[in-house]
Amino acid sequence: MLDIEDLHVEIGGKEVLHDINLHIGEGETHVLMGPNGSGKTTLLRAIMGFAGLTLTEGRITFKGHDITRIPLHERAKMGMGMLFQRPPTIAGLKLGKLLEVTSGGDLKKVEEYSQYLHMDNFLDRSINLGFSGGEIKRSEVLQLMIQKPDFVMLDEPESGVDLENISLIGNAIAKLVDKDVHIVNRKKSGLVITHTGYILDYLDADFGHVMCDGVFRCHGNPREILKVIKTSGYKECLACQKI
């Protein structure tokens, strides 16, 4: 699904991601962990193709196509999607209007999915304006359910979400990455940033990666990695010689 080779990324002339290599196969869900400011969100933004960062070296291949230089919206059209940790507020643009556009006018689907995520009362509201943490995440998941990406990147989907909403969001996200489909037939892939690991209760992840200071420090079983971080913190990862 996704191949990243020797990727180097700069922001404002300073290299923030160094020599990143990552392979995510079809039907796989990967987890990305690491301390604040380690470059996790930057990696997601580089894969999605956002402006403001420069890819100085390396290559990103998606579904067999080199997408390193192609624009953001074309990557989205090819089947990439992203759940934002802190999406912008767009005053005036109603959530329902955006979903109408992205669903190609399929209002029935918009209605069905928004009811499922308890967002039907938000369709007439400006996107993210005055939304609580949980409402923002439900809106993000709703947009992705309509978009139906083959590869979805989730930037801290559980942050700011209360316990009641986490199962709703967790189950919806599990569907986004085909967790309700038998492993043999699973086609959709995901890359999830998490600090707490709560989302892993809903989402069996196949691989885990730890990023520190813009480099991968560790690859392995996500549950094992999380256990180490929970008991010893990231200093254990930084000291680890096993890489």
Binding site: M48, F50, A51, P71, L72, H73, A76, K77, G81, M82, F84, P87, P88, I90, A91, G92, L93, K94, K97, L98, V101, T102, S126, Q143, Q147
Partner: peptide
């Protein structure tokens, strides 16, 4: 704002459609 346009582009809208959608929302009083 650039981040608003890119947000919609990440949902698959090209830059022109993303911009027009935001403008339409801006006027939608």
């Amino acid at each position: 704002a650039r981040d608003e346009i890119e947000y919609l582009m990440s949902r698959g809208l090209d830059e022109g459609v993303a911009t027009a959608t935001i403008i339409r929302g801006f006027l939608d009083v």
